[in-house]
Design a protein around this nucleic acid. Sequence first.
DNA 1: CGGTATCCGTTTGGATACTG
DNA 2: CAGTATCCAAACGGATACCG
Lengths: 122, 122
Amino acid sequence: MEKSCESPNITSEDCSAMLLAVGDALYAVGGKWKLRVIIGLSGDNKRFNELKRIIPGISARVLSNELKELEMNGFVKRIVYADASPVMVEYELTDYSSTLKDVVRSLSEWGTTHRERIRQIK
Amino acid sequence: MEKSCESPNITSEDCSAMLLAVGDALYAVGGKWKLRVIIGLSGDNKRFNELKRIIPGISARVLSNELKELEMNGFVKRIVYADASPVMVEYELTDYSSTLKDVVRSLSEWGTTHRERIRQIK
DNA sequence: CGGTATCCGTTTGGATACTG
DNA sequence: CAGTATCCAAACGGATACCG
């Protein structure tokens, strides 16, 4: 189980297993927006328009769809404060979302280094 | 620099920085196929049709396009053995690709656990 | 505020056939 | 073998308007 691509040789079984696992991961949180929405919600709960402001470039339609899917798949919880007027809605990350911590961290770190690299090349 | 989402409070600056970094990362290696192609090439060099067989569901057209982009961005090197007949072509990961090791590992690990979770729920 | 509905251009990518 | 060309359907997603 300690294969991490640093061994010089990866068997084709390892490769297939990784392709399967990464496929599953991308199916759940792949795409342009899912991880960004989760990042946007990290720290504290956010309201719809607040979240929309935080995530650059996302439209209401897309954000709405992403939130629905993320909720269906157990990454996000929708909280309605019915006593407020007009009704206030907050979105909260579930505990399950925090299992993505390492994914987000590694991607974020890589992105930072990659950005620096691109800057140097140009 | 040691923010990793496990501290209870993430400032909005941290959040914006992460969104930027992850945005850069997704721009380079996001999408359905890029990481899969890189995984397919890990271990050892592969030829075109070999790679196509390894990556489930990818078509020749898509693989061809992905390889071109990955080459342009420095993740993959195309090696032509002109002395063979017909000409033999191999694809090889560059050193830069190995900077993605942690991204691939975390995504693969998460995918594995996630798959297990889905299985239980269903 | 928290969305939804509609319209429509762009991108993605599968199928199939074909080439040197 | 290593792709390319063409066609086409589906998905993605921006703009705008609108609703309770």
